[in-house]
């Protein structure tokens, strides 16, 4: 593999402005063969190139059940993501991946699912939500608890509206106190509190959390109270990465290389890790 660090060219087919500074791109490989052969699993990530600026790491936000394209969602916050943000439909960028492990969705057949996300933490979870919705009959109850700082900061607003309408999903949206608007119909409060109020049953259930570290911490204790054990709870870690393939030495948490053995871990695994977050 002599082109280990060489990205594949992708064309931006669609751009959605999700929230202030947050955009989603729908990407299609320039190489037609690759469009068909490219495979990935929920939870995997990629490195996205803005040529002239470098690469940035984030998850694939679409689901493997969606064929022919990949979607990514990112916040413009650094050199590369600002440059990506300046691109528009028809532009070319680079993609390398998929890398990392994935959510064991096959093992979860027949289980109830609880998805918990905060802010820009929804995209990795969204890949699994899409997957579960596309195979709705494989799963039991689906609960989504999603919150952000303010109404404007909620990502995937269209999809949230759609999830809200569906009778077979319990979708709870919340914003932090002070972040609500006059016509806000969702909850006001922090995600862990809202999660505890929603009180999804722990019985035969898998919970997936993604969001800021502090939110994860309090959600873990909320789930604990609700009777979830650490094997039932999954999260996806994000660390700075440059190579994505276990060489560049940045993403390690103690002896665990997030890019290779992660980014998906059960809460039980996270609790055994070195305190390097």
């Amino acid at each position: 593999m002599s082109d280990l660090y060489i990205p594949k060219l992708v064309r931006i087919e669609d751009v959605v402005e999700e929230a202030p500074d947050v955009k989603s791109f729908r990407l299609v490989f320039q190489d037609e063969e690759l469009r068909d052969s490219f495979k990935f699993e929920t939870g995997q990530f990629g490195l996205y190139s803005a040529f002239g600026y470098g690469e940035s790491t984030f998850c694939i936000a679409s689901s493997p059940t969606q064929k022919g394209f990949i979607q990514c969602t990112f916040r413009a916050s650094g050199r590369v993501t600002n440059a990506l943000s300046a691109l528009s439909i028809g532009d070319t960028m680079g993609f390398r991946g998929p890398y990392g492990n994935s959510f064991p969705v096959e093992e979860w057949k027949g289980k109830n699912m609880v998805f918990i996300a905060g802010g820009i933490g929804l995209p990795p979870v969204r890949s699994v939500i899409r997957y579960a919705l596309d195979r709705r009959e494989d799963f039991g109850d689906i609960t989504i608890v999603y919150g952000s700082k303010s109404v404007a900061d909620l990502v995937y607003k269209n999809e949230l509206a759609h999830w809200d309408e569906r009778a077979d999903i319990n979708c709870i949206q919340t914003v932090d106190p002070g972040g609500e608007t006059e016509d806000w119909k969702g909850k006001v409060g922090f995600v862990p509190t809202v999660l505890e109020e929603a009180a999804p049953s722990a019985d035969n259930t898998i919970a997936i959390i993604c969001g800021p570290p502090i939110m994860i911490k309090f959600c873990l204790s909320a789930l604990d109270k609700l009777g979830f054990n650490d094997e039932q709870v999954y999260t996806t870690l994000e660390n700075k990465m440059k190579c994505g393939v276990g060489k560049c030495g940045r993403c390690n948490v103690g002896d665990i290389y997030v890019c290779k053995e992660g980014p998906v871990y059960s809460a039980a695994e996270v609790k055994k890790m070195y305190d390097d977050f």
Binding site: Y5, G54, K242, C243, G249, R250
Partner: peptide, 8 residues
């Protein structure tokens, strides 16, 4: 030591 950066 093997750490590296990839940059444009």
């Amino acid at each position: 030591c093997h750490c590296f950066d990839i940059t444009d």
